[in-house]
């Protein structure tokens, strides 16, 4: 049920460089960013390389590739993470189908893993 939270409704925004998508942490408590893995990001069926993505959280915008090293920084459980998706010619008022996989590895249980897949068609603001 928590995985339903993953993609925040009405969070898609067209920017000068692409799209910004709001994500929620599908877990009951905050987690270190190093235990969060985002993958299989696609817009309208076209996969985007994680190496080209960036995110905004805790007042900073950084490449997604730095996330595994952030052992001391937390994604607070009620905060929205904004994922920046590079896309040429993003248009306000256009519908986009966003799909992604987010895996969680809660750090207090070695074998616990939660696999969340979210897909939502939204109109870009």
């Amino acid at each position: 049920m928590l995985s339903d939270l993953l993609i925040e409704p009405d969070s898609l925004v067209a920017t000068t460089t692409g799209l910004s998508l709001g994500l929620r942490l599908p877990w009951y408590q905050s987690l270190p960013l190093s235990t969060v893995r985002l993958s299989e990001v696609a817009v309208d069926g076209t996969p985007l390389s994680p190496a080209g993505l960036s995110f905004t959280l805790n007042g900073q915008t950084r490449p997604l590739t730095v996330m595994p090293g952030l052992t001391g920084e937390y994604w607070f459980v009620t905060d929205t993470l904004h994922l920046h998706l590079p896309l040429s010619g993003p248009r306000r008022g256009t519908d986009y189908l966003c799909r992604l996989r987010l895996q969680l590895f809660p750090p207090y249980a070695e074998t616990l893993r939660r696999d969340n897949v979210g897909a939502l068609r939204m109109r870009a603001r």
Partner: peptide
């Protein structure tokens, strides 16, 4: 919490 695995594995 007992966060022993701040990085998976």
């Amino acid at each position: 919490t007992a966060d022993r695995f701040l990085q998976p594995g």
